[in-house]
Design a protein around this nucleic acid. Sequence first.
DNA 1: GCCGTTTTCGGCCCGACTGTTTTCAGTCG
Length: 577
Amino acid sequence: MKNTDIAGIFEQMANFLEIKGENPFKIRAYRRAAQVVEHLPREIAVMLASGEDLKALPGIGQAIAAKMEELVRTGHLAAWETLKNSLPEGLSDLLEIPGIGPKTAYRLATELGISSVDELEQAIQQGKVASLFRLGDRTAENLLHQIQSLRRKDQRIPLGQALPVVEEVLSRLRLLTGAKNLLAAGSLRRFRETVGDIDLMGTAENPEAVIRSFVALPLVREVLVQGPTKASVILADGLQADLRMVEHEAFGSLLQYFTGSRQHNIALRTRMQKKGLKLSEYGITDVDTDKLEKFTTEEAFYGRLGMQYIPPEIREDRGEIDLAAKNALPELVQRSDIRGDLHVHTNWSDGAAPLESMAQAAKAAGYSYLAITDHSGGLGVAGGLNEERLLKQQQAIRRLNKELEGIRLLSGIEVNILADGRLDLSDEILSRLDVVVASVHSALNQNEAKMTRRILKALENPHVDILAHPTGRLIGKREPVAVDLEAVFQGAAAHRKVLEINCMPDRLDLQDISIYRARELGLLLAISTDAHRPEHFDLIRFGIGMARRGWCQPSSILNSRPVEEVLAHLKGGDAVR
DNA sequence: GCCGTTTTCGGCCCGACTGTTTTCAGTCG
């Protein structure tokens, strides 16, 4: 039983209890537990096996800890099954529709006998829904609209797809209106790997004019709501975007509020409530005097709460609030810390540009070194390098290094890990390289035991330095390979290997919670773009976002170090060159 | 159901919008 399964069951528990009209705080407890479990950096099953006390987790007490143990041990949860059986079927599906909450779902199921979205659609068309007490034509029509748009859009979209769209919207609005402080909040600002909808906000002399320009953008397909200070639209690619304009004086608290996460904000408010402060998007109210204080910046907002500024990427209620109050937050890695890239391709394999172009682009990105790691021969499709061409490339790199100024090329390879864990280049040739990046590209459907053994064997090779895109996932397209990451991390620690944070927006691999775990184990990570063309160096921001979400400081990031230290690290450990 | 430099019992985040009524329940973020 995986954490995501356990989280799903707790979420359903919350829904069922809500339908039953149970104590709202009990419901919230289950919902919080679901959140906590879903974002845990380690599997509950592993924690239990090593005898850890689940009650130490935030929001997990006696009762829920026992339920998690039951789920892991038996694969079942009696309380959940009893609850599920006591309710009409199909309620969970109805709850997925925006506008339908527990009360409405229950009434639709009991009063109309509806047990699926299709049946609901029929009932609406037959006018049955509008005839229910306290529902009407408008409500029924809205629900129909929601069902249709639910079928059209595929939920959350990858960050890498959303970010360029958002940037285009924002730059156009700035040009058109001269609005100030325009930016995106929400999960996008927190650099979550997928984005549900987009929250934009800003301040302006004339907010209504900005709203008018917003809904008139060519990118906008449909306007859902339009008022004087707020509008919601559907963009051409199906993404929903909300724009809110506020007075400049309250921008800090508004930004804080809409950046979230929800869990972070709830934890923050609960904590401040005990100190007699009420937090909202408009500012901070002293409950005794009923006086509202406004804040133009988030720094001032957190400052008033007696806290350090908390970077958006770690606002997830995972201990950041306590640390901020103690002035003890980690200094997260940032763009300016990055000194080089340890995984890029050129037109020697499947890249688009020659060595020199990539070198110049890396220099322009502010780097002082760049590892050239084209594919090895085993990957026929990528035009990989055999030993002969690899040695030729190494000579070309040496020649180029004599000409280049301000950037040093390292000679490397992205070597393929074969199905049995061997590499498709000899140890002899690997020993001549500065950097060996190893990765899995074939036989991706092996079972967990086999895949784990395969990767561990590769990590035992003394020439391997970095494990690239460790799970092989492609967001929304390909599931991660079945692998025991905890075992891989232990193996990497034993052999002093480095794990990659791949910046390609459809990979983002390792993902945030795995980065968190790897860092916790003291492993070193490399933030690598896997660039296949010069423009790809810009993708570094995605990897930095993930690293920050994993609470990484520069000390955890290999390529924040100068080239001599990088080489010294790679040649140390159990490497033998 | 969780939690505790005020508490092991009595609290538990905050506000807006919508559609339906005629004062507010339900839902959402």
